[in-house]
Amino acid sequence: MGEVKQIRTLKEIPREELFAPGHRLCAGCGIPQLVRLVLKAVPGPKVVVNATGCLEVATTIFPYTSWGVPWVHIAFENAAAVASGIEAAFKVLERKYGYKRPKVIVFAGDGGTFDIGFQALSGALERGHDMIYICYDNEAYMNTGIQRSGATPKGAHTTTSPAGKVIPGKLERKKNLIEIAVAHGIRYAATMNPAYPVDMYNKIAKAASVQGPTVLHYFTPCPTGWYFDPSRSIEVARLAVQTRIWPLYEYEEGKYRITVPVKEPKPIEEYFKLQGRFRHLLEPENRWLLEEIKREVEENWNRLLRLAQQS
């Protein structure tokens, strides 16, 4: 990887916008901030592969497109497979005709990554295609009406895991995407959060400098599906980091590093009470689940600390 230009302030973020307004993502959505920064931080020509999801349906309603870069829509399940094909084709063009190879960037939601597109992603990582795979994780199938996914956290209310008398929201744990990606032997993987744009920019720039597959996991606050006021998107995202629910860390060639250390975490209740999907967890009868979630968050943080110290 070597020397990648890392920024320290917002003023160093380039001005050029390759993502246009006029898209129909909800007010307060967290996805466009990711797309804008990715298109700024990845240097040179790029090709975007977009799995079905909020981002795809809202930014390319015919005859309108918000994209200023070559863009292809592909079904939920095969975003990584199509990106592999594009990358392989450009490799041939480079070898035969000397064309400069663009960077292939995949945007897929949590449904298109954790559940439906999982085997295509695993295959692409194993074959080692040169691409950046970015999962924007809003923790459920928001585009189709807030159904639970493999990325929905424990205790969250969705329309297919409704909190009520029978269950207190989803009872299963969220998959750990970074660990799954790292297990494939890739060189770089990281988590990102919109409340920390400089950290995010630097991680994208690093991922872009790697030859081979990289996985970035992005936290997307969703006012529609998480039931909170759109103006509080960034507040919710920041609280997720400060309560240690969403640790910001990176994996780089065998080494783990926590990029935003949280010395004194805020109580998890502060994050939960902002969102309608977690409101039932604050009731006395669901106390046991809240304690369980707290324990798991702490275990995960301690595990990351150990990994970071070992490397």
Binding site: A20, P21, G22, R24, T59, T65, S66, G68
Partner: peptide, 9 residues
Amino acid sequence: PMTSLSYKT
């Protein structure tokens, strides 16, 4: 590219 600029939200 960017034709959504003519769709005012």
